[in-house]
Nucleic acid binder design. Structure first.
Lengths: 365, 365
DNA sequence: CTGAAAGCGCTTACAG
DNA sequence: CTGAAAGCGCTTACAG
């Protein structure tokens, strides 16, 4: 609670205490270069008054005047809890969000969290964020229902897509998934593995009006490219979160010390490992295991033994924030004001993290 | 981009199109009960005009008028990446946040994300959210540097603490950690385990001006209570994320089928399990393993075999949101307006999730 | 039932 | 160098 009866101080209060007019306060507090227009003495008096009254300018008023809220939204799928689990979009999104937050923070922007319901993707009705002209821009994280994409641009001045199936020439940032698949495969091959097994999700079918997720397809493409280039074939197995122990048994029993397993998704590697715990088979010793993805959370906290291609989602989030900031700058710039602001899209390459699940292939016995 | 040259429609535009005065538009659009004051015909004309112009009221103006932004902040520690890993506060916070978001959404509130730097916990300077009088309230998630606690209440009208070391009579929500420790221990004892090992963090020391985390202490208290009540002793072992395989080896080799292991923290159980993978020892078969915590993310996505006490952070987040909404309602209510609004604090009990790592104790051989 | 007026706090020209 | 005025878009009394 604020101290009783304490109405927050306004610019008017500051002006009166300092014995000047309101606009002078504005001039001083809004970074007018010192030395111009306002005398040093007045300047000092105003600063002192503002400090004494703990003056904080009212953002709402400022927003109304300028038409800019200095607030950017982050749009994530409405995490009805079922969807979270099934799509695995969950803790990973947070990595992006933290990066975005940091990027925006540095420029003095606030970040609002906007959820989009799968059930009723009517942005207009659903969310006060869109109703209020309150967002200078929005960053779409991962996938939202396809319906939303088209509408978004009519509701908010600027959009950036991060890690989304939406892929335009401009304003998009995503991981380079083909490269990820290729990289993981090359590493296994370099280590001497020529018996490759790829664990992929069962063919992704569009759900709930979502685009099918692109990553699986692209990773597989990269895997194929690398394998073909080395003249190695890859066996495909379907594994996802719902795969039962019984279904895993034949796959696991087929693994030998010369086998290199490529898990396309992180949770696939997890699913496999949980089963390994039951049967006492050791990744890295009894076979090699490489994964095409992995967030830094998982790396450090949970499973830093797993060899994988790592994408720094935090950094990706920061890049998205910087892209948004640039769009906002451009549109302020009177030169290019005619709604034409855009940044070229970026595909970010992952890096190889050599854990303990990929040792050089042991010699044949 | 909005359609070229399209300035968003204002209430004035709507009034002109409908042929009425501005205030009439306000009256109709702000839920004045139909039938009163404004004729049905006028009413219909205004609604039609608003729809045609895609009118969305300007939140900034509304905020300025009312002094209420209908925006609530969520304060999380500034996740400098090192801190994330070490404290493990990371993906779990997101669960809370999602719950908070849902709770606020239902009442038409927006949620802003506010990060607090460990390095410079000067809320005032640091964050535009605090500068702008833009937040009707703030929900502090988990722990923030102690310095911040005291200042917070001078910067924002209402605070709620969620899962924090801050614990007042009012406006706090946290897990009942004593109960969690007791519950996990009771379950192991019920299953016949009387050789108990507790894996706890090395004695928590305050870092970076943080309060020492309360959960470890309280869980241990609950464990002791349950063990004492059953006349069983508990051996303590220190394990955290940094514990090496060499340090784990003696602990693990001591485990027998009659041993019940209590992991106080989730990542402790993980750390242990990663080592088990290397040596082929199976939790649930070669010994019993129970954990005092576990979020639903982890449960469903990653390791649903682990027996543990589960706290639904999503629901806790919703409760925090509801508490905040109630504070806001109270302070609108003219009757109790004098800054006195408060809700009684709540300690939420977790539930037992019986996974596959706690089977009935096998008979002695 | 409807309209003219004042004001929320700020900033941006424009006069002195 | 400083002050009086107008206006951002909305709402809330208060007259008609």
């Amino acid at each position: 609670m604020l101290s009783p009866g304490a109405r927050p101080a306004t610019a008017k209060d500051v002006a009166e205490l300092a014995g000047v007019a309101r606009p002078t306060v504005s001039a001083v507090l809004n970074g007018a270069k010192s030395g111009t227009m306002v005398s040093e003495a007045t300047r000092a008096r105003i600063l002192a008054a503002a400090a004494e009254l703990r003056y904080r300018p009212n953002m709402a008023a400022r927003t109304m005047k300028s038409g800019k809220s200095r607030q950017v939204g982050v749009l994530v799928r409405n995490n009805s809890r079922v969807a979270i689990h099934e799509l695995g979009a969950h803790p990973l999104a947070y990595e992006f969000i933290l990066g975005i937050s940091e990027g925006l923070d540095e420029a003095g922007y606030m970040m609002s969290f906007v959820r989009l319901s799968d059930v009723d993707p009517d942005l207009h009705r659903q969310n006060s964020a869109f109703q209020g002209h309150l967002l200078d821009g929005i960053i779409v994280v991962s996938d939202v229902p396809a319906v939303a994409d088209s509408r978004l641009e009519t509701l908010v001045p600027h959009c950036v897509w991060l890690d989304s199936t939406v892929w335009h020439e401009t304003n998009c940032i995503r991981r380079d998934e083909v490269h990820a698949g290729r990289l993981a495969t090359q590493k296994l091959i370099e280590l001497g593995y020529r018996d490759l097994v790829c664990l992929k999700r069962p063919s992704t079918m569009p759900q709930d009006g979502m685009h099918p997720h692109y990553s699986s397809h692209l990773r597989w493409q990269g895997i194929r490219e690398a394998a073909d280039a080395a003249g190695v074939s890859v066996e495909e197995c379907c594994v996802d979160a719902k795969t039962t122990d019984e279904e895993l048994a034949p796959i696991v029993s087929r693994l030998r010390p010369g086998t290199g397993v490529l898990a396309q998704e992180y949770y696939t590697a997890y699913r496999l490992t949980r089963y390994l715990l039951q049967v006492g088979k050791r990744p890295g010793l009894d076979f090699a295991l490489a994964c095409c993805e992995g967030s830094f959370t998982a790396d450090s906290m949970q499973w830093n033994e797993l060899s994988h291609v790592t994408f720094d989602r935090f950094t990706l989030g920061r890049k998205a924030a910087r892209m948004m900031l640039q769009l906002l700058d451009n549109s302020t710039d009177p030169a290019s004001d005619c709604g034409e602001s855009a940044c070229p899209s970026q595909a970010i390459k992952g890096e190889w993290y050599a854990g303990r699940t990929t040792r050089p292939r042991p010699p044949e016995e």
